[in-house]
Simulated assay, not measured.
Amino acid sequence: MKKIFIALITLVSLSYAQKVYATFDVAAQKSANLAFTASGIVKKVNVDIGSVVSQNQILAKLGNKDIKAMLEKTQIVFKFASRELKRQEKIKKLIDASKYDKILSNYENAKASVAYQQALYEKTILKAPFAGVIYDKSIEVGDAVSGLMLKTVFKIQSIHARKLILEFDQKYHGIVKVGQTFEYKIDGDSKTYTGVISKVYPYANFDNRKIKAEVEAKDFTVGLFGDGMILVDGK
């Protein structure tokens, strides 16, 4: 019985024969700096710092009456060009080929003009690229923005999804793998948490000779830090 007990202890100790120390910072799983790519005067700002937004929600708009008017004009031209093309397609065999080609060309040009004006119009509207929370804002109604000199006006990050950016000594580059367990503590928190390595960066930092890895987490405040142990499979 004693031998069996010793064998079990040995088997357990071999399962995690080595632990690799790592420090980490908490980062948002998704984050982005948002800016207008068009020039104009800010007409409307719909969110503030701390606002929770959904994907494609409108965050701010530039004054765009002139661009909207031009878009509507091109849409009208396109509508009549479409009607004319449909009429001519019915009698295509009865008309001169060059005349039909000209009508088709007018249709295609009108279609391209609508697409171009639509793109210009959309650049005056800033939308959230994903569901998240606004954590920085540097824009107010009346501000002038320039598409030639991009300036971040909002910073957005995922609401709950976080990632721990681990750093460990490069000498362990061959044994730390995706799927291994990471036991850790957040600085100032006595609770021990457990996560799984989801990514190992394929390079070492030239300055500190550290390698990075990532562990998925939830709801920690971005910017916190801590440390822990990577449980390396000893098999």
Rank of each mutant, 00 (worst) to 15 (best):
I67N: 06
L150H: 13
G179V: 02
E167H: 13
A204K: 11
V153W: 03
K123H: 13
L164C: 10
S98H: 06
I103Q: 00
L150V: 07
P202D: 08
T23W: 07
V114P: 11
A128G: 11
A131N: 10
A217Q: 01
Q75K: 02
Y201S: 10
F24Q: 06
K137W: 10
E84P: 01
N56M: 13
V215I: 04
K177C: 04
S13D: 08
L224G: 01
L71Q: 04
R87L: 06
V45W: 14
Q170E: 11
V178N: 08
K212H: 09
K92N: 00
V222T: 05
I95V: 00
V133F: 04
H173E: 08
S105Q: 14
S158C: 10
D169I: 04
K177I: 02
A22L: 01
A115D: 12
N205Q: 09
L120A: 05
K163N: 12
A27K: 15
Y100T: 00
A28D: 05
T37R: 15
A60P: 14
I159S: 12
V145I: 15
I230Y: 08
D96K: 13
I58V: 15
K102T: 07
E89N: 09
R209F: 06
T192K: 06
P202R: 13
D219F: 00
I103L: 00
A22E: 01
A81W: 02
L62Y: 14
Y184W: 10
L231K: 15
A144F: 15
K30I: 11
A38V: 04
A119C: 09
G234R: 09
K30A: 11
R83H: 05
F24H: 04
L34T: 10
Y203A: 13
I4E: 07
R83L: 08
E167N: 15
I186A: 01
D96N: 03
D207S: 12
V133E: 06
S198P: 10
L164T: 04
K3G: 03
G40I: 03
A144C: 13
I139R: 14
I91A: 01
Q180Y: 02
I49T: 08
L120W: 09
D227W: 11
G195T: 04
V12F: 09
K68V: 01
N56Y: 12
L231T: 08
T192N: 02
F182G: 06
E140S: 15
T192L: 03
L104R: 15
N33L: 07
K68E: 01
K185I: 01
I41T: 14
V45D: 10
R87D: 09
K235P: 07
A213P: 05
G179H: 07
N208S: 08
L62E: 08
K65C: 03
A35G: 08
M229A: 09
T194K: 12
S146D: 14
T37F: 11
D189N: 02
S198W: 10
L59F: 12
E216T: 05
I125Y: 13
F78P: 07
A7G: 07
V133R: 11
Q170C: 06
S190T: 06
E140H: 15
T194V: 03
Y184P: 06
E72P: 01
K171H: 05
F154S: 04
Q170Y: 09
G174N: 10
K61M: 15
N205C: 03
D101R: 14
